[in-house]
Every structure is written in structure tokens, then in C-alpha cells.
Amino acid sequence: MGALQELVRSLIYFLGVNLIFFALTISILAFKTYFVMNTVPMEMVVTILTVWPQP
């Protein structure tokens, strides 16, 4: 029971930490480009979103 609980917990943490890095990457990119170009290049964000789990 303890091992199963830890498995679920580790899955949640793995996804959570991944999500934090992913959100950070996207938001930093968006902010950076906003300050440089005064626009958020949505196509770049969409590309990253689609590329994330794919080769």
C-alpha cells in the first residue's frame, strides 16, 4: 500500500515539476519577446506546445 501511494505521489510530482518548467519556459519566452518586439509571437508558442511531446 505504501509503495503504491508513493508511486502515485511520484507521478503527481513528476507531472507538477514538468509543468512548472514548461509554464516557466513559455512565460519567460512570451515576456522576453514582448519587451523586445512589443508583441507575443503566438505561432512560436503554438509550435512549442505542439512540439512538447512529439519528435
Binding site: A3, E6, L7, F14
Partner: peptide, 11 residues
């Protein structure tokens, strides 16, 4: 596999 091993390590 990595997640499972991490769970085992912590358990």
C-alpha cells in the same frame, strides 16, 4: 519506469 523507480526509492 523513472517515476516507478523514484516511488520505490522514496518508499
Amino acid at each position: 519506469i523513472i517515476i516507478m523507480l523514484a516511488g520505490m526509492v522514496v518508499a
